[in-house]
Simulated scan of single mutants.
Amino acid sequence: MNGKPEHIGFIGVGLMGHGIAQNILAAGYPVSVIAHTDRSPVEDLVTRGATEAMTLKELASKSSIIHICAPGSPEVEAIIEAILPTLQPGTIIVDCSTSDPKSTIMLAAKLKECDCHMADTPLGGTPVQAEAGELSTMVGAPEHVFNRIKPVIASWASTIVHIGASGTGHKMKLLNNFLSLGYAALYSEALALSEKVGISTQKFDSVIRGSRMDCGFYQTFMGYAIEGNREAHKFTITNALKDTRYLAAMADDVNLSNPVGNAVKNSFALAHAAGGNGPEDYVPHLTDFIQKLNAVKKI
Rank of each mutant, 00 (worst) to 15 (best):
I237D: 09
H162Q: 07
A157N: 09
S188M: 02
N255I: 02
E189N: 12
K203M: 05
Q129I: 04
T168G: 12
G210R: 12
F178I: 01
N239G: 02
S188I: 00
A248P: 04
T159G: 10
V152N: 02
N239I: 01
F235V: 01
M250G: 07
D120Q: 06
Y183N: 15
S136L: 02
T126V: 01
L174P: 07
N176K: 08
A190L: 04
V145C: 05
R212Q: 09
A141Y: 12
H162N: 06
V254N: 03
H233D: 12
E227M: 11
E131Y: 03
R209N: 14
E113N: 13
T168E: 05
S188A: 15
E143H: 14
G125C: 05
T168Q: 09
H162S: 03
K196D: 04
L111E: 08
A240Q: 03
G124P: 09
K150S: 04
G133T: 02
D120H: 03
K150E: 15
N239F: 13
S155V: 03
W156T: 11
A165E: 13
Y183F: 15
S206P: 11
K171C: 13
Y224N: 11
K173C: 04
I199S: 07
A240F: 08
A225C: 01
I226C: 10
D252A: 00
H117P: 04
L193C: 13
I199N: 08
F204G: 11
C114I: 02
S206D: 12
Q129C: 06
H233K: 09
V207C: 13
C215Q: 05
T236F: 03
V254T: 07
I153E: 10
H170Y: 03
H162G: 04
H117S: 08
F217I: 00
S257H: 03
A232L: 02
H170W: 10
S257A: 07
S180R: 11
G169S: 06
E231D: 14
L175D: 06
A225V: 00
G223K: 00
T236A: 08
G223I: 00
M118S: 10
H144Y: 05
G133M: 00
D243Y: 03
Q129L: 14
A248E: 10
A154S: 15
D205E: 13
V197K: 13
F217S: 10
M250A: 15
C215P: 07
V197T: 11
V254F: 14
S194D: 12
V139A: 06
Y246V: 05
A232M: 06
F178Q: 12
T236D: 08
V152K: 00
T137P: 01
K196G: 08
L135S: 09
S188F: 03
K112N: 13
Y183W: 05
R230V: 04
T137W: 02
E189H: 08
A190W: 09
L241Q: 08
M250T: 14
I226E: 10
N229C: 04
D120F: 07
T159L: 11
N258V: 06
G198F: 00
